[in-house]
Measured scan of single mutants.
Amino acid sequence: PREAYIVTIEKGKPGQTVTWYQLRADHPKPDSLISEHPTAQEAMDAKKRYED
């Protein structure tokens, strides 16, 4: 089974940042970016789909 994890990042100019959620996995390479999402819920949904 595949495993993934969610990383929170800040995008934008200082003082005007927006939080994004990255879905990452250690396949095919360590810390590979799988997808980016504007909400934590979307990231969790993507994580479930990826791991299923």
Rank of each mutant, 00 (worst) to 15 (best):
K11E: 05
Y5P: 00
I6T: 02
A4Q: 02
Y50A: 03
R2M: 11
A43L: 01
T17R: 11
I9Q: 04
Y50T: 02
D45S: 10
Q22G: 02
H37T: 01
P30L: 10
Q41A: 13
E36Y: 03
H37G: 00
T39N: 10
T8D: 04
T17W: 12
E3L: 15
A43P: 00
Y5I: 06
K47S: 02
W20E: 02
I34V: 08
I34A: 01
I34L: 08
Q16Y: 12
Q16H: 12
T19P: 06
R24W: 15
T19W: 07
A43H: 00
E36A: 03
T19F: 10
V18Y: 09
Y5K: 06
Q22H: 04
A40P: 09
A40I: 15
K48V: 10
E51T: 08
K11Q: 05
A43T: 02
D52V: 12
W20F: 08
K48H: 10
V18K: 13
Y50E: 02
E3M: 15
H37I: 01
K11W: 06
T39L: 04
A43R: 00
S32V: 11
R49V: 12
D26Q: 08
Q22S: 04
E10H: 11
Y5S: 04
P28T: 06
A25N: 05
P28S: 06
E42F: 04
I6N: 00
D31T: 05
D31G: 15
L23P: 00
Y5V: 05
H37Y: 07
H27L: 09
T39A: 03
P38I: 10
K48T: 10
K29V: 14
W20N: 02
A43W: 00
Q22D: 01
R2P: 11
Q41G: 08
D26T: 11
D45F: 10
P30D: 06
K47I: 04
V18G: 05
R2N: 09
D31M: 12
A40R: 15
Y5G: 01
K13C: 11
G15I: 03
T17G: 09
K48D: 07
M44E: 13
A25I: 14
K11N: 04
Q22F: 02
Q41W: 11
I9C: 08
Q41N: 08
H27I: 12
P14W: 08
E36T: 07
D45M: 12
R24M: 10
D45I: 14
R49E: 09
K13S: 14
A43K: 00
Q16S: 12
W20I: 08
R49M: 11
P28Y: 07
T19I: 14
V18E: 14
L23W: 01
W20L: 06
Q41Y: 07
P30N: 08
T8S: 12
E42T: 05
R24I: 08
V18H: 10
A25H: 05
A46M: 04
E51D: 13
Y50C: 03
A25W: 04
A25G: 07
Q22M: 03
K47H: 05
W20H: 04
E36K: 02
Y21E: 00
Y5W: 15
I9V: 14
A43C: 05
E51R: 06
G15N: 07
Q22L: 04
H37W: 14
G15C: 06
Y50R: 03
V7M: 07
I6H: 00
V18I: 12
R2D: 06
A4R: 02
P14A: 11
P38L: 13
Y21L: 01
Q22W: 02
T39S: 10
T8Q: 12
I34Y: 03
T8F: 07
V18M: 11
P30S: 07
D52P: 05
D45N: 11
S35M: 01
P14F: 10
R2Y: 13
E10F: 10
T19E: 06
D26S: 14
K29W: 14
E3S: 15
V7Y: 06
P1M: 13
A46N: 03
E42G: 08
T8H: 07
G12K: 05
P38D: 06
P28K: 08
T17P: 07
T19M: 09
L23F: 02
K13W: 12
E42M: 07
L23I: 06
P1R: 15
Y5Q: 04
R49F: 09
R2I: 12
Y50D: 02
K29I: 13
G15D: 07
V18L: 09
K48C: 07
Q16E: 14
E10T: 13
R49Y: 10
K48N: 09
T19V: 12
T17C: 08
E3Q: 15
D52L: 14
Q16W: 09
T39M: 03
E36H: 02
I6Y: 02
R24L: 06
D52H: 13
K13R: 12
K11A: 05
S35I: 01
P14V: 10
S35Y: 01
G12C: 04
H27Y: 15
D52T: 15
E3W: 15
E51H: 07
A25M: 06
K47T: 01
E36I: 07
D26C: 14
A40D: 05
Q16K: 12
E3F: 15
Q16D: 12
E51Q: 11
W20R: 05
E42K: 06
K47G: 02
T17D: 04
Y50W: 15
S32C: 07
S35C: 03
T8A: 13
A46D: 02
Y50I: 05
P28A: 07
K48R: 13
G12A: 05
P38F: 08
I6Q: 00
A46H: 04
Y21K: 00
A46V: 02
P38S: 11
P1N: 14
Q41L: 11
Y50Q: 03
